[in-house]
Design a protein around this nucleic acid. Structure first.
Lengths: 210, 210
DNA sequence: AGCTTACTTGACCACGGGGTCAAATTCCGT
DNA sequence: ACGGAATTTGACCCCGTGGTCAAGTAAGCT
């Protein structure tokens, strides 16, 4: 690789990281190139696809942040506090970092490594959920799919309110958390039971919502 | 108005009603014209703007449905049942009729009459909320803005799941409702306090989410 | 039937997104 | 400092959206 190409790739990575961070994984490629001070042709040249760019710029960072949050959640002695921390931290991430938020809610079905990451994150989520349920504090009918839906819904709200009332999401999350405690459960819930493919279809549809 | 123009207007109204119903108030005008079997020029000719079309095709219908739901909610003897019915009915509306859902969540800031309607609907909502709070069953820190956020979040979820798991929204709504009962309240909530203009700004942002 | 006028059409504009590729440019080894 | 190869550029294509308007068409009055 020639030196100039290397430099351009670096400029593009930087610009991409910025724009993804500001606007999420759907930021226009042409705008990334513009910010990097480079023609969009060059971007296609050096990376070929949005996915490649995402892999180089978002994946590791997202993995680190998500791992950290899951770890921190499990570090709470109280299972409920851990669960609540986990939910709140992920929700907060959705305003502070739309790119990572897109990873969590599976908003970018195109990128292999992201799906892996998403899967790993769901696994941590499951562990945190199960711990809270075994401790008897989280209602037993709450599933990891429900958690993802919760996050998906919050993502929309958080983005809509972030410029006007940046903390609004805390209210709705607080309401929801109160409804997730074991003693809050009132009636049997309507069934969930999504198969894995169904689930990904749904998350894909959520993605189109952008 | 000439007879053929009248006929075309009617065809357009029909097509618009269908598409709005299927896809919400943001359905492309050109597609409405296409479905009506008429050039898009004619649409602009006869109606001039999307808002005009909405007024003729959605407003009354939406007013009727919303009025009916509010009335039905207040008809419940039990204040909680009334509130829960209201929330669930509105959420259900969001899959069965995206157009009306757009009205409720204020997704079309351009149309005057819709804003009036939206305001009226919020007023009914307030009545239903207050009744439940006075009966001591709905937590007193729940506001009508919170309700709108709830609906906005649900709208996204409902649309994402309607083809795959059409009843998923019922689960998340059930969780949330359980968290709204007086006895579920655990901690003081983060502040709400949106001014009216702020609130409309937020709903506008929610609209861009589409 | 003829003619005026209302109406319709579809090509056209602008915008913004994704993506391609021939030609121009720049690097760098010799 | 030259020349071949790597790299970049930006004009060009696609698509779908909103919107306008001159020219063509047909309704319906006399």
């Amino acid at each position: 690789m020639r030196a100039d190409a290397q430099r351009n790739a670096e400029k593009l990575r930087t610009a991409a990281a910025e724009l993804f961070h500001e606007r999420g994984l759907h930021a226009p490629l042409k705008e990334i190139a513009r910010r990097a001070g480079v023609s969009h042709g060059t971007l296609y040249n050096l990376f070929g696809s949005r996915e490649a760019l995402i892999n180089e710029v978002v994946t590791d960072l997202a993995a680190a942040r998500l791992g950290q949050i899951a770890e921190h959640a499990l570090a709470h002695d109280d299972a409920w506090d851990g669960f609540a921390y986990y939910v709140e931290a992920l929700c907060e991430l959705q305003i502070t970092d739309p790119a990572i938020s897109d990873v969590v809610t599976g908003r970018y079905p195109g990128a292999e490594s992201l799906m892996v990451l998403c899967e790993r994150s769901r696994a941590s989520g499951t562990r945190i959920i199960e711990r809270a349920q075994q401790a008897g504090v989280l209602r037993p009918d709450f599933t990891r799919e429900d958690l993802l839906f919760l996050l998906g819904a919050n993502a929309v709200l958080a983005r809509a309110t972030k410029d006007t009332a940046p903390d609004s999401w805390r209210r709705s999350v607080a309401f929801t958390l109160d409804g997730l405690r074991t003693e809050a459960a009132h009636h049997p819930l309507p069934p969930a039971a999504l198969t894995a493919p169904q689930f990904y279809e749904v998350m894909g549809a959520l993605a189109d919502t952008r």
